[in-house]
Write a protein that binds this DNA or RNA. Structure first.
Lengths: 206, 206
DNA sequence: TGTACATCAGTGAACGCGCGTTCACTGATGTAC
DNA sequence: TGTACATCAGTGAACGCGCGTTCACTGATGTAC
């Protein structure tokens, strides 16, 4: 914080306007929190008094950590439910991508808590971990598909996850953009671009 | 909000714990806000009284809208500053990607305000628009590069932006993941994957 | 079979905090006469 | 050259709000004797 400042000279009042914007810019060099639901809001939703929460959680942080862990379990369950371990690796990759993207778009608040705020949230929860678990899962499928091996497969898995995350995030936050097509189609196209598989349309032409 | 609920029976106190988590899940089906700096925090940073802000902005929303517009201008300026219109389209694409990603990672709070909250923020600002401006810019370069045409070029541009956004977003929020490599390298690899250009390493092997 | 009592599942009032906003004000500075 | 006055750039106290948390309490229910 700056010291108490002297008033600007007459005619230079607009200085302050610029200073305010610049100060805000300074504050924005560190990441912002995405605010979880408040303890009181959750209690209201259940129909219980705010103090009732403390019968089960030591603090708001503990409550939110439990919520986040539950959401992560849900996402994992959704992915497991649509996976067919016996199917072709490429089909499994595509199914995983579709499920991931759909789940994220259908649970925007949960997705934000898991992947757009993790490291700023209560330490009790891993908030979807560091992301390594997801990266590893994708990388394993890439390896099975055979389009890349070893470290290169891990990189490809990482990039696929990055692209899928970008898709979910922008669909959540920029719903008014000219997306022109379903998110599922985009998910498939992103996967194919990264494993070097021809697009569905191109494959049909052959 | 639910009605005032009856107490659980003895021994079933844990019910409430589950209900709280489930209620939070319900609240999370709508997107959460990423909180901008508070008016008072900005005023503190400048060293001015909170009421001083109202000499220049009618409300906090107006202030934040001005901040967001200023950040968007900065991003545009950064992109313009590194663009060499006479260069090869692929090089221009790669330079754009690098600049975009670097700016986002260096200005996490600003990036979040522009691309991870836009539609929930004050209507006065377009908060980085709907994203169409960026998509169009990338698509124009894709078209110049010639790897896709017309609507397909627009889709490719869209996917490149999606992937770059995913990269920035995850680097901001999951700094502890095993990224193994610089964000700039990842940016280049993502662009190449989407325009069908061989990786730098592969190109060298020939 | 009755009754005292411990335990359980919660309530309600109060606290201090930071917030956005309003409103009457203050002190310096330029301008008209 | 002096002085009254308008204007400018801000201040400071107060407001009502929702928040997380604490703490003494309440009422129902099971258990021991």
């Amino acid at each position: 914080m700056a010291q108490r400042r002297a008033a600007n000279r007459r005619g230079e009042g607009d200085q302050l306007r610029l200073e305010l914007i610049r100060a805000a810019t300074d504050l924005l060099v560190q990441p912002r929190q995405v605010s979880p639901p408040s303890l009181r809001a959750i209690a209201r939703e259940v129909g219980v008094s705010p103090s009732g929460v403390y019968l089960h959680f030591a603090s708001q942080d503990d409550l939110i950590a439990a919520v986040i862990d539950a959401q992560y379990d849900e996402l994992r369950a959704a992915l497991a439910a649509t996976d067919k371990p016996a199917a072709e690796p490429l089909d499994r990759l595509l199914a995983m991508a579709r499920t991931y993207v759909r789940w994220g778009i259908d649970h925007p608040g949960a997705y934000q808590l898991l992947f757009e705020s993790a490291d700023a949230l209560p330490a009790g929860s891993m908030a979807g971990g560091t992301g390594d678990e997801i990266m590893d899962g994708v990388a394993a499928l890439v390896r099975a598909h055979g389009s890349a091996r070893g470290a290169e497969a891990r990189h490809t898995g990482m990039r696929i996850w990055i692209a899928l995350h970008g898709l979910v995030s922008l669909r959540i936050h920029k719903p008014h953009a000219s997306w022109a097509g379903s998110a599922e189609r985009d998910a498939a196209a992103l996967v194919r671009a990264h494993v070097g598989a021809p697009s569905a349309a191109a494959a049909r032409k052959r």
